[in-house]
Design a protein around this nucleic acid. Structure first.
Length: 424
RNA sequence: GUGGGUGUAGCUCAGCGGUUAGAGCGCCGGGUUGUGGCCCCGGAGGCCGGGGGUUCAAAUCCCCUCACUCACCCCA
């Protein structure tokens, strides 16, 4: 009799009815906040040609190397479930020539992302991001506005005790010089740290900077930092961003050791972290990617954006702000029919109430009055409509106010209008 | 991929060699010919994650495996 249960896939979660209101609230807040900054929603597909991600995120990144859900479709084409949204947004921006519209193109996207990783606290294989991107301007004021919007949203969501860190990764001119200097330093320091570490240093020295290993941290503390290599452009850009942020009253910290795991970033990068999240402590990460649109076949177009992790954000809201909004009952009225004939009439009556805009449920499957009343009580509905033989015969209904424990028998039409009048 | 922790009822967990495996909560029914919550009574629901081994005897000890979880690499 009992067959083997099919469970969800590792690292993938159901969002159950009791938690989905929190998701809806946060998503609505993002839409409202972003709209005040002139952003429009774009909905891009959850899968793309594999090449899009390989080209944009970078062949040497962990995401592309080992974390992508890649498969061949029936036509033999290699497709990949999106590990992030920026690449798709750039693709759509180019494909639909959104660059031909005036001004800065401001877009946001909310949805699931997929990465094949071992799950842990704050890390899932299917997770959700709120993603915002601004295309078409080099102006550091855009960087600042993006960050101000982010801070605006996070604080409206009720988050406190967050840390915002900013860095400038250098541009095409000064970043390679820094990478070389860092690599030289690390080559000398990591000779006895094993082949994987050394290979990392060879492939992408910058990413050594966010290792958590205590031995590595000690080396990093002595390593050269990028600020020593910034050219005038980078210095001015970061300075302008910081000035604007200060002017906006945003608290932040410049961290010259902050790096990001995606190759396309340049100049401004930033990260919002919380101490209340466990090892995966970033709620949001973002930065500028001035070469990406062109790399994907579009016109040279500077751009900047960020991604907020929904699950991590919700974890913080749960931990910090508590359940401020008590879950209101999903129902206004509940119908209790006694007997077959009453069941048919109750079904029709429920229809009328719903047409009037009320949220209505009824006791299916009959049962004793006691049992139906218990169901009515648990439904949370304020009003219960009892339809028994007496009421049927008289064309009435017994309207019970569950909160006040009072009830009266009224003609159908009267009960209906009374309920509709009290509707929110 | 690597390492640690945990797997017993729908949920949270007790039992840790010895009768038919328990509690609380939840669920269903009854206590009232047609009235919820509180209370009382009753009931359903377990291959004790799976496989193998040790033993007269295994939920309990050992091995393997799977799942969940935390952490590393990395990221939201």
């Amino acid at each position: 009799m009992a067959r083997a249960k099919i469970t969800s896939v590792r690292g993938v979660k159901d969002i159950l009815p009791e938690e989905s209101p929190r998701w809806q609230r946060v998503e609505a807040l993002a839409r409202e906040t972003f709209a005040r900054y002139g952003y429009s929603e774009i909905r891009v597909p959850v899968f793309e040609r594999t090449e899009l991600f390989a080209r944009s995120i970078g062949e040497e990144t962990d995401i592309v190397n080992k974390e992508m859900y890649t498969f061949n479709d029936k036509g033999g084409e290699s497709l990949t479930l999106r590990p992030e949204a920026t690449a798709s947004m750039c693709r759509a921006y180019v494909q639909h020539a959104l660059y031909s519209q005036p001004g800065v193109a401001k877009l946001f996207c909310i949805g699931p992302m997929f990465r094949y990783e071992r799950p842990q606290a704050g890390r899932l294989r299917q997770f959700h991001q709120i993603d915002a991107e601004a295309f078409g301007s080099l102006d550091p004021a855009v960087d600042a506005e993006v960050i101000v919007m982010l801070a605006d949203f996070l604080s409206a969501a009720g988050l406190k005790d967050l840390s915002l860190q900013i860095n400038n990764l250098g541009d095409a001119e000064c970043r390679p010089a820094y990478a070389r200097a860092l690599q030289e330093f690390l080559r000398k320091e990591t000779t006895n740290l094993g082949p994987e570490v050394q290979e990392r240093v060879e492939r992408n020295p910058l990413r050594f900077l966010d290792s958590k290993d205590p031995d590595h941290r000690a080396i990093i503390a002595r390593a050269p930092t990028i600020d020593l290599h910034w050219n005038e452009n980078c210095q001015k850009h970061l300075g302008a961003v910081c000035d604007r942020l200060k002017g906006a009253g945003i608290r932040f910290e410049v961290n010259p050791r902050l790096v990001r795991g995606l190759d396309y970033y340049c100049l401004t990068v930033f990260e919002v972290t919380s101490r209340n999240l466990g090892a995966q402590n970033a709620v949001c990460g973002g930065g500028r990617y001035d070469g990406l649109v062109e790399e994907l076949g579009g016109p040279p177009t500077p751009a900047i954006g960020f991604a907020i992790g929904m699950e991590r954000l919700l974890q913080l809201i749960g931990g910090e702000a508590d359940e401020s909004a008590a879950p209101a009952s999903p129902l206004d009225a509940f119908l209790v029919p006694l007997g077959e004939k009453a069941a048919a009439e109750a079904f029709a009556l429920a229809g009328e109430l719903r047409k009037g805009g009320l949220r209505v449920d009824l006791a299916f499957g009959g049962g004793s009055m006691k049992s139906q009343m218990r169901r009515a009580d648990r439904s949370g509905a304020r009003y219960v409509l009892v339809l028994g033989e007496d009421e049927i015969a008289k064309g009435t209904v017994s309207l019970r106010d569950m909160r006040e424990s009072r009830q009266e028998e009224l003609p159908r039409a009267e009960a209906l209008s009374k309920l509709l009048a009290g509707r929110r």
